[in-house]
Amino acid sequence: MTGYIIRRLIAVPFMLIGISFILFMLIYIRPGSAAFISIGSAMSDPANIERFEERFGLNDPWYEQYGKWLGNALTGDFGVTLRTPHQPVADRLADHIGNTLQIGFITIIMAAIFGISVGVLSAVRRNSILDYIFRGVTIAGISVPNFWVAILVVSLPARWWNWTPLATDWVSFTDDPFRNLSIIIWPAMILALASAAGTARLVRTSMLEVFYSDYVRTARSKGLREGRVIWSHVFRNSLIPVVTLIGLQTGAVLGGVVIAELIFGIPGLGTLTLGAVIAQDYPLVLSSLMLFAFVFVVVTLIVDVLYTVIDPRIRY
């Protein structure tokens, strides 16, 4: 077990380096001069562009650029943004990551709670009216696009009650926790909708698979209360695929946060990355995508370790 975790931990940096290489190549082959977009057409004097490209090493061959980036990144220096004022990329990321992680965290917790409760209820009362309603609602939940729900939530209340959950006056959690949460809860709820629906569907199917197994019949026939049969025998044994899904959903949630931040006007990693992609600010794009990938890799690692807690039969 410890050996497995150590092996996985050793693999993480190699994987991140691999990801950074793929991303670098993607960004490197994109057409158009980063310098031109970054300093703007007002300064489109060829000499200026020349000087700009010289300064940020944009004229070097790709392997030199990548090597320099990687070497610096390994020592914790992620370079400066191409756009003025050339702030350190690390500072920009540090300013924005908190909000994104906060939304993502609340989303995943809410999705797990709602998804698991609905799924369990649906499985226990299978083929009842409640089950049919839940099944309809969950399929609708995974079918309705996040961004559509988000724009409806932003614009419809504005029409009806002259009120909108739009983050026009953004405050950080440390300044005013209550106000901050009252803003963040909206995008988190919308993102949680789709994830919860997916989780609920999987909980239902995987619980139904276990429901008719021999050990559940044994548990019932030895006189256990129904609640105990469901929680300790059925539910626990159906958790493995559910935990996998919740881990995988992290990726979808992180992607969804990008759009939710944009619609609700929240200064997070998503808005930062979108802006950077459009402005071709490649040091910023590369580092923030790496940050997303890093979060995902860590979550996957945690999920794999969790397997052994849920199911002691699994040993690595």
Binding site: L23, I29, R30, G251, G255, V258, V277, V285, L289, F296
Partner: peptide, 15 residues
């Protein structure tokens, strides 16, 4: 898989 899908598609799209 580790790169969030929307962001991957976004980067690829511009590339």
């Amino acid at each position: 898989i580790a790169i969030p899908g929307i962001l991957l598609a976004l980067t690829l799209h511009t590339a």
